[in-house]
Computed example of a mutant assay.
Amino acid sequence: MAELLTDAEVAEALTGLPQWRRDGAAIVRTVELPTFPAAITLVDRVAEIAESGNHHPDIDIRWRTLTFRCSTHFKGGITDLDVTLARAIDRLAAG
């Protein structure tokens, strides 16, 4: 079962996720893609990983700019599930 990370643990995790920031009970990253279809392709790829891990980010789509928000809602904050998903999003965004 996922446990909430302490503030210190979140800060430590974010040192390895330089494009992410904490926003209250979530970690957030914005990605800008070259085109709208490229943005939707990334959303589709993130959706596949999220579904397979049964942990889903909130995704805001604004033309070719995506904002990913990871929070473990049933825990009310940030857990290792969010850090793992953020790392996966980084890998996909870099690819």
Rank of each mutant, 00 (worst) to 15 (best):
13 A>R: 10
13 A>N: 11
60 D>P: 00
25 A>F: 13
56 H>T: 07
43 V>W: 10
12 E>A: 13
15 T>D: 03
22 R>K: 11
26 A>V: 10
37 P>W: 06
66 L>G: 01
49 I>Q: 15
58 D>Q: 10
66 L>T: 07
74 F>D: 15
27 I>Q: 03
65 T>E: 00
44 D>E: 14
34 P>K: 10
60 D>A: 14
13 A>L: 04
56 H>R: 02
33 L>I: 03
20 W>H: 06
56 H>L: 03
19 Q>N: 14
39 A>R: 06
15 T>A: 09
58 D>V: 05
43 V>L: 02
70 C>M: 03
47 A>C: 11
71 S>D: 01
15 T>R: 11
40 I>W: 13
25 A>H: 14
39 A>M: 10
61 I>W: 06
26 A>Y: 06
70 C>Y: 11
15 T>Y: 00
17 L>F: 10
62 R>E: 04
49 I>G: 03
25 A>Q: 14
67 T>G: 04
73 H>L: 08
74 F>T: 15
55 H>P: 04
16 G>F: 02
63 W>P: 10
20 W>C: 05
62 R>Q: 13
21 R>C: 08
15 T>F: 00
46 V>I: 03
52 S>Y: 04
56 H>C: 03
39 A>V: 08
61 I>M: 06
53 G>M: 15
41 T>H: 13
60 D>F: 12
17 L>D: 11
19 Q>Y: 02
27 I>N: 04
29 R>P: 09
29 R>N: 03
37 P>K: 08
60 D>S: 14
54 N>E: 14
57 P>V: 06
43 V>R: 13
35 T>S: 10
34 P>A: 11
66 L>V: 01
24 G>I: 09
21 R>K: 13
26 A>L: 06
22 R>W: 05
31 V>H: 05
61 I>Q: 13
11 A>P: 03
68 F>N: 05
45 R>A: 14
18 P>S: 11
71 S>P: 00
73 H>N: 04
67 T>Q: 12
67 T>H: 12
43 V>H: 12
47 A>Y: 06
52 S>I: 07
41 T>Y: 09
22 R>H: 10
64 R>I: 11
33 L>R: 08
44 D>G: 11
14 L>G: 01
13 A>T: 02
67 T>L: 00
49 I>N: 12
65 T>M: 01
60 D>R: 14
40 I>N: 00
63 W>H: 03
19 Q>F: 01
12 E>Q: 12
34 P>M: 09
36 F>H: 07
10 V>K: 07
70 C>L: 15
59 I>C: 02
12 E>R: 01
75 K>C: 15
15 T>E: 09
67 T>M: 09
12 E>V: 00
35 T>W: 07
40 I>R: 10
48 E>C: 07
33 L>Y: 06
57 P>D: 09
32 E>D: 00
26 A>G: 05
45 R>K: 13
59 I>S: 06
58 D>H: 09
20 W>M: 00
31 V>T: 11
16 G>S: 12
58 D>F: 05
33 L>P: 00
69 R>Y: 02
37 P>D: 02
23 D>E: 14
71 S>F: 05
15 T>Q: 05
60 D>W: 01
52 S>P: 03
50 A>D: 07
54 N>K: 13
62 R>I: 07
64 R>F: 08
73 H>S: 09
40 I>C: 05
14 L>A: 06
38 A>E: 12
68 F>L: 04
25 A>D: 15
15 T>G: 07
47 A>N: 05
